[in-house]
Design a protein around this nucleic acid. Sequence first.
DNA 1: TAAGTTAATGAGAATCGTTCGCATTTAGTG
DNA 2: CACTAAATGCGAACGATTCTCATTAACTTA
Lengths: 137, 137
Amino acid sequence: METQDLKKAGLKATVPRMKILALLEENKVRHVSAEDVYKALLESGEDLSLATVYRVLTQFEQAGLVTRHHFEGGHSVFELNQGEHHDHILCVKCGRVDEFVDKVIEERQQKIAAEKGYNMTDHSLYIFGICSACQKD
Amino acid sequence: METQDLKKAGLKATVPRMKILALLEENKVRHVSAEDVYKALLESGEDLSLATVYRVLTQFEQAGLVTRHHFEGGHSVFELNQGEHHDHILCVKCGRVDEFVDKVIEERQQKIAAEKGYNMTDHSLYIFGICSACQKD
DNA sequence: TAAGTTAATGAGAATCGTTCGCATTTAGTG
DNA sequence: CACTAAATGCGAACGATTCTCATTAACTTA
């Protein structure tokens, strides 16, 4: 039950929080904006405010349930944390997003951080390109 | 002369553009926001508008003279393209930014893109951590 | 080098995603 | 079931960026 997940994260199990978490867990789309979440919930009959969506997503992020990605134009998209860490490769033409995991890169990053005297906490890697479908146009 | 650089980039050699390019080439700071550029130029006696700074930086980006980095909170910072490509490692406590180049990572990225059927055009890699100075606090 | 054409600029309004303030409602507790 | 703190809704506020449009400056050609 989601109630447990929320409690574990130190968050009260309120209606908006459960609805948002449930939506993310449906996993229809991996990467959603606050606006996406807001609209999807309105459509499914929920009545909540956009401000709440932002608040909740920010709390989820702080609780480690969700990762926020910063995109161009000040947009953020959120992604439920599940399974292993991964990075992203995205198409600059159609916006398609794929994911990948590469141990070699992970290791090199650790090494680089160490060399520079940093205690690595996180990283963000995006590869941009043109996907196979778009190469045909 | 900067005039040449601008012409080469297909841009008229106007006063604001030359001043902004000169400022970036001074290279006092590698990563500047539009606001930084605007203030610095005002202080050095130039009279230009923030809108122009944004316009010019965007044109520089399109011309490949400059790279724009998207940071948290919808902030962008710009960096003059000079020398070789590099990635960034930054301190989440003090905001310090270091740069690095890693051939292994570059190659892996090419390989991953190919595997996923993408024609890679660019990438962005940030390592986050706590720098040596901040580890002591 | 002066006139003409077009693109660039300044100033401020407008936009967009996001956050805030505050009155109201709800969840968890006893 | 009543109580208290925390969560929500609403709309206003915000900050970065972009737009509009009248004015000005930069290349072109004579």
